[in-house]
């Protein structure tokens, strides 16, 4: 009832929707970098969206299945094979006992998700399965997947995540041709436009820096990880020297250290920071940002708080439709 890791991939970790409630104790939220792909992967196999998935980065893992399992792959576009035969993403896949799933390199995007019906069962730490690498907790012993490790998957025996209605359809699932994929995963642009709100300290910056922030592209540098993306581009400066007293920061906060190159904080961001916050990436664009690779360029486009909420509702409506379409599929 588990998956044996034959190849670990570049950085493969167990993630869920985060460890909430402990930020005032300095414990980060963490969780899936691309929460949309994580949620859809779970829905595809009949799990609750909160179930733990495997998040892989740029190069995926190879996993040997110790039992029949229903799985789904989502996120960036990765070459994936089962027993040497290419398989599609964004749909449920039945993997037979003894089969080998090999996830290769990302063709587009940066991160992929593997959901298994019944979830991945690791001990919850502070209420979450998410791997918190820096503290060495959560997931599989607080670390990325290691070769020969076993990923515990109870499958349909887990009473908490019954993969509703799927069992009877096993035969059909081997011939399924439909898929679901939120529209924004269909094309990954070279220069992505990310929509951003003015941050609390936006007004501290030179007018020229404010203009440059909206008008010039920034490159995501190789010094980028689950904690944050370091950007290279026009240096942004404060109109007068001012120091920010450490205060809360969140997923998508764009902060600017003294040398002037902004950092976008990602899922594993620290709970507090002391750099002026020039912007805040809107929630509806976090999933797209999570799929950006080092070397790619992004542009920031200003939106109002009202527009940000409108875009969030639009995304959630789209996802709700997708989810209800899936539950109809299951009933057939």
């Amino acid at each position: 009832m588990s998956l044996r890791v034959e190849k670990a991939g570049l950085l493969t970790t167990v993630q869920d929707l985060g460890r909430w409630g402990y930020q005032q104790q300095g414990v980060i939220v963490g969780g899936a970098m691309d929460p949309v792909a994580h949620r859809v992967a779970n829905w595809l196999v009949g799990n609750a969206q909160e179930a733990a998935t495997l998040e892989f980065t740029m190069l995926g893992p190879s996993l040997r299945f110790a039992a029949d399992h229903l799985i789904a792959l989502t996120g960036g576009s990765f070459a994936a094979q089962i027993n040497g035969k290419a398989v599609p993403a964004w749909r449920p896949l039945l993997v037979r006992k003894g089969a080998l799933l090999e996830v290769g390199r990302a063709r587009q995007g940066a991160r992929g998700y593997l959901a298994v019906a019944g979830g991945i069962q690791v001990p919850l730490v502070l209420g979450s399965a998410s791997t918190y690498l820096r503290a060495g907790i959560g997931g599989l012993k607080g670390a990325p997947l290691q070769e020969q490790a076993m990923v515990p998957c109870p499958g349909s025996s887990n009473p908490e995540f019954p993969p509703l209605g799927w069992e009877t359809g096993h035969q059909n699932l081997e011939r399924t041709t439909w898929f679901v994929r939120p529209a924004w995963y269909q094309g990954f642009r070279q220069e992505l436009v990310i929509r951003v709100l003015q941050g609390p300290e936006y007004g501290w910056f030179f007018r020229e820096s404010q203009r440059a922030f909206w008008q010039q592209p920034f490159q995501v540098t190789p010094q980028s990880d689950r904690m944050g993306y370091r950007l290279a581009g026009p240096a942004l400066g404060l109109a007068e020297p001012r120091e920010l007293l450490s205060t809360a920061v969140t997923f998508g906060t764009v902060q600017v250290p003294p040398q002037g190159n902004p950092i976008v904080l990602m899922a594993d961001h620290q709970t507090t920071g002391g750099y002026p916050r020039i912007g805040q990436v809107i929630r509806a664009d976090l999933a797209a940002l999570a799929q950006v690779l080092p070397g790619q360029r992004i542009r920031f486009q200003e939106v109002t708080l009202e527009e940000a909420y409108r875009l969030l509702y639009e995304q959630e409506r789209h996802l709700a439709q997708l989810k209800s379409a899936l539950s109809l599929k299951r009933k057939r």
């Binding site: 909430w20 409630g21 402990y22 930020q23 005032q24 007293l245 450490s246 205060t247 809360a248 969140t250 709970t271 507090t272 929630r283 708080l305 009202e306 909420y309 969030l312 959630e316």
Partner: peptide, 27 residues
């Protein structure tokens, strides 16, 4: 969801999809 006190601020986290009542103009 939770709050984070700091030197001069208290930051309150909430789920905008679960805020109830009259959300005009926004949650």
């Amino acid at each position: 969801l939770e709050l984070v006190p700091a030197y001069t601020t208290v930051t309150v986290y909430f789920n905008p999809l679960q805020v109830s009542g009259h959300c005009h103009p926004t949650p």
